[in-house]
């Protein structure tokens, strides 16, 4: 009897220790566990194919996607984005002046934590802030011109490896943890977390859809979704996901979504940028 009790106690202590070590895991340990989870769940996915989302795990839809990629619907919008990117502001400056390397091939470094401001800066936020700083009106956050420019900037960054950093600043870690919390928290009338569909049930059918693995989710944004019939930013998709579990979505570029993007993109560190993408 006593032996049993001791055993139970010991197990409890062991579990508590394990739990506390999970809570204290560094972002890098989180990332490695995250990657391992998907590698174990989908052992047939090769190399960096994660960046292709559901098409990495479903050959039937992949065939149609490859057909679409033969002349992808986003190309004419990448061209538009390039024109917008190169169009000078009224003051003679342009978007290129606000970014490192003239804005070319830099998407892999976004989002980043700005230690001066103490918050996460996404590429879309930086684009609109650049416009405002130069006396131009900001664009809408979810689609249209901003998405087109973001798509062009992603296009110039294709093949570069996602490289999100968490600087040694407690506020940066807090932003990361807030994003992580969003990902794993249940919400909405369906009481589901991002992690339910895109980790634990990923690859299963949700009505007629197969849910995509979260690993690789951020690399191909912005995306041209057939459902939208237009380009949309990552935050537009976040809003859609939240709505689908019958939760009230947060605003695009809200602190909540910027933190979520920070966490998710960090999980994709090392995976190449392949945006913009085409999705169903």
């Amino acid at each position: 009897m006593n032996k049993q009790l001791v055993k139970t106690l010991l197990t409890t202590v062991a579990i508590m220790l394990a739990l506390s070590s999970v809570a204290q895991a560094s972002p890098e340990e989180d990332r490695q566990a995250f990657v391992k989870f998907f590698h174990d769940r989908f052992p047939n996915v090769k190399g960096d194919d994660w960046i292709n989302g559901v098409y990495a795990i479903d050959s039937a839809s992949r065939a149609q996607w490859e057909e679409i990629e033969d002349f992808p619907p986003y190309e004419i919008y990448v061209d538009e984005g390039k024109k917008l990117f190169e169009t000078k502001f009224a003051n003679g400056k342009s978007l290129a002046d606000c970014f490192e390397n003239g804005g070319i091939g830099i998407k892999q470094n976004y989002p980043y934590f700005d230690t001066k401001r103490g918050e996460v800066v996404t590429l879309e936020l930086a684009i609109n802030e650049c416009r405002e700083k130069n006396g131009e009106k900001p664009w809408g956050w979810k689609k249209g011109k901003l998405a087109a420019v973001s798509a062009y900037m992603a296009w110039t960054s294709r093949g570069k490896k996602t490289n999100v950093k968490i600087p040694n600043d407690p506020r940066a870690l807090a932003a990361y943890e807030a994003g992580k919390k969003h990902f794993y928290s249940r919400r909405g009338q369906l009481n589901m977390a991002c992690a339910h569909c895109h980790m634990h049930y990923s690859g299963n059918k949700l009505r007629a859809d197969i849910t995509s693995p979260a690993l690789g989710h951020t690399t191909h944004f912005p995306v041209f979704r057939s459902k939208w019939g237009s380009l949309g930013t990552l935050h537009r998709r976040f809003g859609g996901c939240n709505k689908q579990v019958r939760a009230k979505p947060f605003k695009a570029q809200s602190e909540e979504y910027r933190n979520l993007e920070y966490f998710l993109t960090y999980m994709n560190n090392g995976l190449p940028i392949n945006g913009p993408g085409a999705r169903k």
């Binding site: 949700l206 009505r207 007629a208 859809d209 459902k227 859609g240 689908q244």
Partner: peptide, 8 residues
């Protein structure tokens, strides 16, 4: 043609 869960 199916009605999707997320895509449809």
């Amino acid at each position: 043609v199916t009605i999707g869960g997320c895509g449809g």
